[in-house]
Each structure stands twice: as C-alpha cells, then as structure tokens.
Nucleic acid binder design. Structure first.
Length: 661
DNA sequence: CTAGGGTTAG
C-alpha cells in the first residue's frame, strides 16, 4: 500500500479568491473518496492503464515519470511539494485527460487545484474546465463556470453551446446564439456545427434555416464540418431535397458528409436510396466506416433487403472491418428483419463483445419470428450472466410473450421490472393490454387500463380495440374506439378496426357509417402494399393496382392458384372485406390484396423450391394468412411474410405463428 | 480551449 498526501493538502490549504463558489470544493471534497479510488489514488497498481496514461501525458521527463510512479504520487502532489513546476499546459492536459476518460470527480479536483494556482485567470484553461464539465455531462457545473467567468470569448460560448447540443438540450444551445451575436462575437465553424446539431433536434425547421443563413453570411458554407452538419440538420427536419442540395453544393465532401446523407435516407425508410449512395461513395473513393455500415444495414433491415444486405456484409468482411457491437447489432437486426433468424444468431454468436443492445436485438429477433420460448430462455440467460436489462429489453420480452400467447410469463416479467428498477413506460402498458386482450381476457385488460398509474394514451386503448376485433366484442370495441378517437383523431387505424368489427358482425350499416365519418373528417388510410425482392430488385405491389408490367400474368396466376388451393381445402373468408357488396364481388376484391399479388409474382419469377420472402406494410388479413398456408403446402415451398413487426414462416400448410398474431 | 455522421422496441 502506498501513502497518498494529495487530498490532505488540497483540502486543508486555505483557498485563494477564486472564480468559483465554494460548492466546487464541497462537491470535490465529498467526491474525494471515490475519486481517490480511481486515478488519483495511491492504491492503484502500476498496471492500471489510466493511472499511467494520466501521468505519461503530463510528465515528459522519463526520470521524473519513473519517480512519480515509484513513489505512487500524483502529478498534483508533486506540484504541492514543489517537486514539479506547474505550468498552464499541465492543467489543460490533466483536464483533457479527465474529459477523455469521462472522470468527473477527478476533473473537479483538478479544477479545484487550478483555482488555487497562479494561472487561475487564464481564459484558455477556464474554457477547458467548462468543456470538461460539459463533456462529462454536468451541464449545471459547466453553466456555473460560464456564469462566473469575468471574460468570455467565442470559444467559451461555443463550448457551452456544444455542451447543451451534445446533451439533448437543443433549446438551451439555440438561445445562446443570439446572445453571443449581440456581444459582437464572431461564430466559427465549431459554433455552427454544434448549433446545427441542436437545430436538427428541435421539431421546427425554422431555427435550422435561420442558422443556415448565418452560415452563408459568415462564410462557412464550404466548410466540410459545417456542410455535413447542414446535411444532417435538413435530413432530420424531413427535408431530404434540401439535404441533397446542400450535399451537392459541397466543394469538398468526405465520409462524414456521405454518412449524414445515407443515415438520413435510412431513417426515412428510403432504404434503396441509402444503398445506392453506399456504392456511389465508393466509386468516388470514400471509404465506408462503422457509421456507414451501421446506417446501410439499418436501411437494408427497413426494406427487408436480404440479398443486398448480404452483399454489403461481404463487402465489410473484405474490407477487413472488425465486427464491433454497434455495427454487429444492426447487422444482426438486418438478418432478423430480412427473415433470416439463423444468420442473425450467427452474428450474435460471433460478436466480440455483446452489449445490452446486442441482447435486446436478439430478443427482438426471436419475438419477431414467433419464438416466444426462445426469447424467454435467452432473457433468463442474459440475467444469469449479469447483463442489466433496460426498458427496451423488457419491451422485447413482453411483446414476444404476447405474440406467443405466453400470458403468465408476460405478467411475471412485467412484475419483474420492479426488481430491476426499470420504470414501466406507456409502451409496456400497451403490451400488457395486448397480452391480456389476445388471451381473450378483455375485461381484465380494461380493468388493467383503469388501474394504470399513468394516463392511458391512444395506443393503450388501441391495443384493447385490436383485441376486441380479434375476439369480436362489439360493445367494448366501440367504447375503446371512442377513447382512441378522442386521444388521436387523425389515426386511420382505429376507424378501420371499428369498421371491421361491425363488418364481421354483419352490421354493414354501422361499418359504412364509420367509413363515412372517416372520409368526412379527412382521415386517410395508408394504402396497403407488399414488396418482394427478386434478383436484387425490389418489386412493390399495391392492392388493386395494375401498374406492374406483368400484372395480367400475375392475376391469371393467382386465379389459377386460388382454384387449386380451393381443391385442397381453402375457403375464402370474406369477413375481411368491408364493403357492402355481394359475395362474388367480395371474393374478387380479396384476390387483389397486395400480398397475394406479390406471392403470385414470386411464384412466376423464382425457381421451384426456393424460399419466398415477402414484406408487407400492415398486418396480414386472415384470408391471406389462410391462403398462404395452403399455397405453401401446394407448392412445397417455404414462404416468409414480414408483417409490420413480426414474421410468418409458412411451410407444409402451417404457419410459425400458430394462427396467433 | 471549441465541431459534424451510427444500433435495439412500438
């Protein structure tokens, strides 16, 4: 054990007049015990990298470094003992080290020591202190330093703006800008980059456009940092054309500007565009980074492009990039969302380090593929290993239980959230309502809603409405629908569901009434479409749409399939057709559901025996579900249908969801 | 001394 003198000296020495209130000292003092255990302390063995790092970075003299390490004293002790002549750069290096390692308590101590030093009026070091607090996430202390500084330069303002913008306080960042301009300070490229990041995080695009104006005025529009920030800001404001325009205007692009644009398209569900840009950036000799791969895999996942995703994966392997968790998690998700759960598992197994997101992604993958039991097993394993579950973990587990009909397990895990101190959010309540509702316990679900400690949202009542549709409970369904209409009048979903409830009960007048209200209030239903990927091209089908070049052939094929599956037991279920039309007409309508068109198209254009993968933007209807089962049996092929949030694996006349979805 | 781009759920 080595003795340490640093704390006894620093906290007993009388303090010089300082920039700061004594609260820094109090905080530093109270933090001393934990701080001591980290990189200031004597007990730390020489093998502790951070201890060595900290010393190495400030002590250039090798002899002195050895002496420091051998004596176990810290640099600041050496100054106190007069063994080391302090200079301003030393404080900067120490503070930056704390920033880099995210060591707030240690940073406070260096700050305290700096305040006692002869350099405590140095603006540059004060800025470094401010930056240290901001980067360590303590915006209150950063602000306090800022407020107490007698002089502030542009860097001071920029450091605080950056602090707010990087810590999810965009409004605080944005209000500082006009204040700083009023003082006559000139913003630079750093200021604008941070401001634009903040502007991209607020709902309106007003601030972003204004800042863009100032960027031009101050002449930073050709700076690649500012340019990338502009691209990102416009992309986040849903202004993809503007983002593209700014990008095209950039005189010098780099990988970051490309990534900002690619990520923008990936977020906006414009996967094909993102993938095109991925290949384009390489034609222009920009190397994809982890950021790029992460965005591109997520783009592939969104559109369910398995083949393209595999190409990008192969490309990443060839380029020698390591599979770090951040990228691996999106890769895993890509395979899972493209329907290949087996590949997703392989990625999970090969991850060098698994973080909580890796586990969550794997749990989500199992849930999406209807493997409730496996979700539960993996979750238990995760707890055994000692990975702390977070709110997403529980959401994955609960939805998985709900999809698999594991009622008791789901309720048990909901209760378990308390033990792991994860506060249930409204989405968790939605899942429990869904779980109870699917299991047919509609009254219990309603009671559960009434006993919620937080205010139920439209989604909560929507889950009950969905369950009422499933179990054909008209009365409670109408009541739930009313609650949804109140809370979210613009969503078409509940109107459609309620109309469906009436329709399946044969109450065509009521069904039509709901449709009429929907039409009058301007609520629009999202058109249903399906996608199928064939030979690296994605084909899209919309219900009753005849724009596809092969449409005649496709319809002919479906009629033929329909006749053949009727022979082996398929009975068209017309309760899913909502219009007040006669039986024959309803059957005709059913034929053109987009997933059926996609299936017919795939059967026409793929080799016998190969797996067919179809993606749909809304829940599959009961009739299509039944038809797909019969087709899988008839053609002896596996058909994988991706719903909005889950998968149906059809094979030999059965579906993996067990008709429970 | 100050800057930009990435993941899981619903």
């Amino acid at each position: 054990m080595r003795k340490h003198v640093f704390f006894s000296t620093i906290f007993t020495t009388s303090l010089k007049p300082s920039l700061s209130t004594t609260s820094h000292y109090r905080t530093a003092s109270s933090a001393s015990a934990s701080a001591a255990s980290a990189f200031m302390a004597s007990e730390i063995p020489e093998t502790e990298d951070e201890q060595l790092d900290a010393s190495c970075c400030v002590i250039q003299d090798k002899d002195l470094l050895r002496k420091t390490q051998n004596s176990g004293l810290h640099v600041l002790d050496l100054i106190d003992r007069g063994a080391l002549e302090p200079d301003p750069t030393l404080y900067n290096k120490l503070l930056n080290k704390c920033t880099q390692l995210g060591k707030l308590p240690e940073g406070r101590i260096v700050h305290a020591h700096f305040l006692r030093s002869q350099f405590n009026r140095y603006l540059v070091i004060q800025n470094t202190v401010l930056n240290m607090y901001a980067k360590c996430g303590s915006l209150e202390e950063a602000r306090q330093v800022f407020d107490e500084m007698p002089n502030r330069d542009m860097v001071t303002w920029t450091a605080l703006i950056t602090g707010y913008s990087q810590n999810d306080k965009p409004h605080d960042a944005l209000v500082l800008f006009p204040q700083m301009l009023r003082l006559g300070l000139w913003p630079n490229q750093f200021t604008f980059s941070s401001l634009l990041k903040a502007a991209g995080a607020v709902p309106s695009d007003r601030d972003g456009r204004q800042i863009h104006g100032f960027v031009v005025k101050y002449g930073f529009n050709s700076n690649v940092y500012v340019g990338s920030s502009l691209v990102d800001m416009y992309a986040r404001c849903n202004l993809m054309d503007e983002a593209q325009f700014v990008f095209d205007c950039l005189l010098s692009k780099n990988d970051v500007s490309y990534n900002a644009l690619i990520a923008g398209h990936a977020r906006k569900d414009e996967g094909e565009h993102a993938i095109r840009l991925f290949w384009k950036m390489q034609r222009e000799d920009f190397k994809p980074t982890h950021f790029t791969y992460s965005s591109v895999f997520s783009a592939c996942a969104n559109i369910g492009a398995l083949e393209q995703g595999k190409w990008v994966h192969a490309h990443m392997i060839k380029s020698g990039q390591q599979l770090i968790a951040f990228v691996g998690n999106t890769l895993l998700d890509m395979y899972a969302k493209s329907g290949s759960i087996e590949d997703a598992k392989k990625v999970f197994d090969r991850l060098i380090r698994r973080d909580v997101v890796s586990w969550n992604s794997m749990l989500a993958a199992c849930g999406q593929h209807g493997r409730g039991k496996e979700t539960v097993e993996r979750f238990e394993e995760m707890l055994r290993i000692g990975i702390d579950p977070n709110e997403v973990t529980f959401l994955c587990v609960l939805t998985s239980c709900s999809h698999a009909g594991l009622l008791d397990k789901g309720l048990y895990y909901f209760d378990l959230m308390k033990k792991y101190e994860v506060e249930p959010e409204v989405s968790h309540y939605v899942t429990i309502v869904d779980l109870l509702g699917r299991a047919g316990q509609l009254d219990r679900a309603e009671r559960f809603i009434r006993n919620m400690p937080i205010k139920p949202t439209a989604a909560v009542w929507g889950a009950l409405l969905g369950a009422c549709r499933m179990h054909k409970n008209m009365e409670l369904g109408a009541y739930a629908a009313e609650r949804v209409f109140e809370l979210d009048p613009h969503d078409s979903g509940p109107h459609v569901l309620l109309s469906n409830i009436y329709a399946s009960a044969g109450r065509w007048t009521d069904a039509a009434k709901v449709r009429k209200i929907m039409k009058e209030s301007g609520v629009k239903k999202e058109p249903a479409c399906s996608w199928v990927e064939i030979e690296n091209a994605v084909h899209m089908f919309v219900a009753n749409d005849d724009s596809h070049p092969q449409i005649e052939e496709i319809c002919k094929k479906w009629v033929e399939i329909c006749e053949r599956i009727k022979e082996i037991g398929y009975i068209p279920d017309t309760s899913h057709v909502l219009l007040f039309v006669d039986q024959q007409e309803r059957e005709a309508k059913l034929q053109y559901h987009s997933e059926k068109l996609a299936l017919a198209f795939a059967l026409l254009n793929t080799p016998p025996g190969s797996t067919i993968r179809i993606k749909k933007n809304i829940r599959v209807c009961g009739d299509c579900h039944s038809a797909f089962k019969f087709v899988s049996k008839m053609v002896e092929r596996e058909i994988i249908l991706r719903d909005t949030n889950r998968f149906h694996h059809f094979g030999a006349g059965f579906c993996s969801c067990g008709d429970y979805w």
